[in-house]
């Protein structure tokens, strides 16, 4: 009987610690993903402004260079534009943003910024495009700062909180 109790206690502590770690991971990853997104967009900007690469190829080229969700997001957008669907840049961008929203730790406000950016993607001349890129970079930089602050505040707390709360539950119940 005692063994069961001890085992149950250990499991409870482990599960709680794990949940805490998950939450703290979320806070740790978001700034990294925003940073990655920013450098990807920077590359896209270069492709557009200096090489005048058409969007599907530019998105593909950028996507290839990142082996994470951000890279896959770009590749997916490119595939939507060239594949059977033949979507316009706006439609493809929006569709793959939905995918990104489900598969990354970006928040709603990050996605909204990207969504607004997508409306103007590819449908104006070079100079105009650059303005939109500058704007989105600025907004994302701001988001990154916020995400960083939240990480500092919450990451460590959640990491420990999981373990301690698990322990608390075990103590109360026993």
């Amino acid at each position: 009987m005692k063994i069961v109790k001890v085992l149950g206690g250990i499991i409870t502590v482990l599960v709680c610690s794990f949940m805490g770690l998950m939450v703290s991971y979320r806070y740790a990853v978001r700034p990294m993903q925003i940073k990655c997104l920013r450098s990807a967009l920077q590359m896209l900007e270069t492709e557009i402004y200096y090489s005048l690469t058409p969007l599907p190829e530019a998105l593909y080229g950028v996507g290839k260079r990142f082996e994470n969700e951000i890279g896959r997001f770009f590749l997916y957008t490119s595939r939507l534009m060239t594949g059977k669907e033949m979507l316009t840049a706006q439609e493809a961008w929006e569709k793959s943003l939905n995918w990104l929203w489900e598969n990354s730790f970006l928040t709603k406000s990050d996605i909204d910024i990207l969504k607004n950016f997508g409306f103007n993607l590819g449908c104006s001349d070079r100079e105009e495009q650059i303005k939109h890129f500058k704007l989105v970079q600025q907004q994302l930089l701001h988001q990154e700062g916020n995400a960083e602050k939240e990480r500092e505040k919450n990451e460590r707390m959640w990491r420990h909180m999981g373990f301690w709360s698990g322990l608390l539950i075990v103590i109360i119940l026993s």
Binding site: L52, P54, P56, Q90, A92, S124, D125
Partner: peptide, 11 residues
């Protein structure tokens, strides 16, 4: 128009 330009008006 977007299909024509492959959504890359800047090119």
């Amino acid at each position: 128009f977007l299909n024509l330009t492959r959504s890359s008006v800047y090119t």
